[in-house]
């Protein structure tokens, strides 16, 4: 699915307006523990997390992820958004809980990849 479809499915707000929302996302990972995210490489993945600090973007960057969803209405600060923009990572926030957000994306056909 595309980043644009993720925004729609999660009723999310895109916080990096210049992001290319037509980009394809092939896998997803939901976790607040960044080392768990780093344990399994996925291709063109989206990261769903309730953690709100710069290490979320650094983790996504090292994994070549294309999109980050902050769940439970978390809003990253400007520094985090600038870090993501510099790496072409789309960032959005959704009011949904982690469980609901993951469930809806799964229902739309997105899978967890190897992990």
């Amino acid at each position: 699915m595309t980043i644009s479809q993720i925004i729609e499915t999660l009723d999310a707000e895109l916080l990096t307006p210049d992001a290319d929302v037509a980009r394809e996302v092939h896998a997803a990972c939901g976790s607040d523990m960044m080392s768990d995210v780093l344990a399994y490489v996925k291709d063109q993945a989206v990261l769903l997390t309730g953690l709100n600090n710069p290490q979320v973007v650094r983790t996504a960057d090292m994994m070549d992820m294309v999109c980050i969803v902050f769940v439970r209405g978390k809003r990253p600060d400007e520094m985090i958004l600038r870090l993501a923009e510099a790496r072409d990572i789309a960032v959005m926030t959704s009011k949904m809980t982690m469980f609901t957000a993951c469930g809806l994306l799964y229902e739309q056909g997105l899978r967890g990849g190897v992990g």
Partner: peptide
């Protein structure tokens, strides 16, 4: 450290992996 998203005991194993 856990509240920052680390300290899950995966750091060294991941480095080796």
């Amino acid at each position: 450290v856990r509240s920052l998203g680390f300290g899950a005991g995966m750091g060294l194993p991941n480095m080796k992996k």
